[in-house]
Computed example of a mutant assay.
Amino acid sequence: MNQIKNYNANKYDNAIYSEIENGIYEVKEDDEIFYVTSLSFVQEQEFNEGSNASNITQYPLEDVLDKFYCYISDFYNDLNTIDSLQCYQEFASPDLTDIRNLRSLIGKHVYNIEIDGYIKLIIE
C-alpha cells in the first residue's frame, strides 16, 4: 500500500458524524460511541496486492487492522471499482487513540515481506 491519504467522504456531512479532529469523526449510534476515519491508498502488485480497487487484498490490510486495533466500517463500493487503482476504506474503533495512530500511516509505504520464514508488516 502506498500513496496513503486522508479521504473526506461526503457522508460525514450527516448529523450522526461530529468532526473532532482533522479527518476523525465521532459517531453515536444506539448509546455507543466510536470513531471513524477514511483513507485512500494504492495497492502494489509487486507485493502481491490487488491490481485494482475492486480487488482489495486481505494483506497487508488485515495486519494494519490488527496493529492499530481497528476494523473496516465502510467499503465504499461505489468508489472501489475495477477502473480505479485508488482504494477507499473507512476504519473505525471505539478508541480515539487507535484511530489517531492509524492516521500515522498517511504518506507512508506499508507492505508485508517474508523475513526468516515469517511474514512481517513493514511501515516506512
Rank of each mutant, 00 (worst) to 15 (best):
D31N: 14
D78H: 11
E46I: 14
N55H: 08
Y35H: 03
D66E: 13
Y25C: 09
N55L: 12
C70Q: 00
E62I: 13
F75Q: 08
S40W: 00
F68S: 05
G23R: 01
I72L: 09
K28E: 12
D30Q: 10
F75A: 01
N77C: 10
N77Y: 05
D74W: 11
D30E: 11
K67T: 04
I24V: 09
E44H: 10
E21N: 03
D78R: 07
I82S: 15
N22S: 13
E62D: 13
A53M: 03
S73A: 03
V36D: 07
I82F: 14
E44L: 11
N52K: 09
D63I: 04
E62K: 15
Y25R: 02
G23S: 04
F47T: 03
N77H: 13
N52F: 07
G50E: 00
D78T: 13
D66A: 11
L65T: 02
V27E: 03
E21G: 04
Q58L: 11
E26S: 12
K28D: 09
S54I: 10
Y25D: 07
Y69H: 14
D63K: 15
T81M: 07
F75W: 15
V64W: 10
N22F: 12
V42R: 03
N22W: 05
N55V: 12
E44G: 12
F47W: 07
F34I: 07
F75V: 06
A53E: 01
E49Y: 10
L85K: 10
I56R: 02
